[in-house]
Simulated scan of single mutants.
Amino acid sequence: MKSATKTFPSTIIAMALACGLLILTGCGKAEKLQAYEFDNDSIPSVNSVVGERKVNGVSSGTGSDGAYQEYTYESESVTQDLYDYLLVELYESGWTPTIDFDLNQIPGTAQMATESIDSGQILLMDVSYEQSGYTIKVTKMEGTITPN
């Protein structure tokens, strides 16, 4: 029993290091990611519009609303990045703002949506931003978009 107690902490440390390497590897790939992919939908990534940004976090899963992907980016030009990405690239591609937002008001949040290629589904993008970076979360869920 004594030897098991001594090896247990080293096993946890080894597992934590392995997980840390996987997370860092995923973040490195995310910095070069050109599109966020959901089944038949392909959304240009922020990197494809503004260039590579350091990625501090990547997560994905299924929440109560649907499948999601979330990316946390570092940037020295937050307002310009989000303007180019949200208001030029996505808006001009048919995405609709679902809340009023002011990219000059930091910290802040923005939200945009578009119809999915898959019938009865939408893509919802939630963005939270602060002076040094932003988080982009894209969720694919059931729904429709009705213009005001």
Rank of each mutant, 00 (worst) to 15 (best):
S132Q: 09
E31Y: 10
D118G: 00
Y134T: 02
F101E: 07
D126N: 15
Y68R: 07
M112E: 08
Y36K: 04
Y134A: 03
T139D: 02
E52K: 14
T114P: 00
T72R: 12
S60A: 12
N104D: 14
N104R: 14
M125E: 10
S116N: 04
S10A: 03
P107L: 06
I43F: 06
I13C: 03
T98W: 08
M125C: 13
W95Y: 13
A14M: 12
A30S: 13
Y71I: 15
E52H: 10
Y129L: 11
T7F: 06
T5P: 00
S128T: 14
N47F: 06
W95I: 06
K29H: 10
S93T: 01
T79R: 14
S48G: 05
T114C: 12
I12V: 14
E130C: 01
N40I: 04
A18G: 03
T96F: 08
E37L: 12
D126C: 04
V50D: 01
P107F: 05
T109K: 14
Y36W: 15
I99Y: 07
T7K: 09
L90F: 12
E74I: 06
T7D: 01
A67V: 14
L87D: 13
S48Q: 09
M112R: 04
G57H: 10
A14K: 10
E92Y: 11
L86Q: 06
G63Q: 03
S132H: 08
L87C: 09
Q105I: 05
E37Q: 15
I23F: 08
Y83E: 09
G20P: 01
L33W: 07
S77M: 13
E76F: 08
P44W: 07
N104P: 01
I12L: 15
I136L: 14
V46W: 02
F8Q: 04
S45N: 07
S116C: 03
A30Q: 09
S93K: 13
E92R: 09
T7A: 05
I99V: 15
F38H: 05
G20Y: 11
G63P: 01
E115I: 03
I23A: 04
T146R: 04
T144C: 00
M112A: 07
E37T: 15
T114M: 09
C19S: 06
L87Q: 13
E89P: 01
S128N: 14
N40S: 11
I145K: 01
K2A: 02
E115Y: 03
K137F: 06
P107K: 04
T62S: 08
R53S: 01
C27V: 03
G51Y: 09
S60L: 05
Q131N: 08
N148F: 07
Q111K: 15
E142W: 00
T146H: 02
V46M: 13
E92G: 00
N56L: 12
G94T: 02
L86I: 11
G120V: 04
T114L: 00
E130I: 04
V49G: 02
Y71R: 09
Y85T: 07
G20K: 02
A67F: 07
L17E: 10
T146C: 00
P97W: 12
E115A: 09
V78Y: 02
Y68T: 08
S59D: 12
Q121Y: 10
M141P: 00
L24R: 07
T98I: 12
N148Y: 08
S42K: 14
Q80S: 15
N40Q: 11
S116W: 05
M15N: 08
F101L: 07
A14N: 08
V127A: 12
L21K: 04
G66V: 06
T114A: 14
Q111S: 15
Y68F: 15
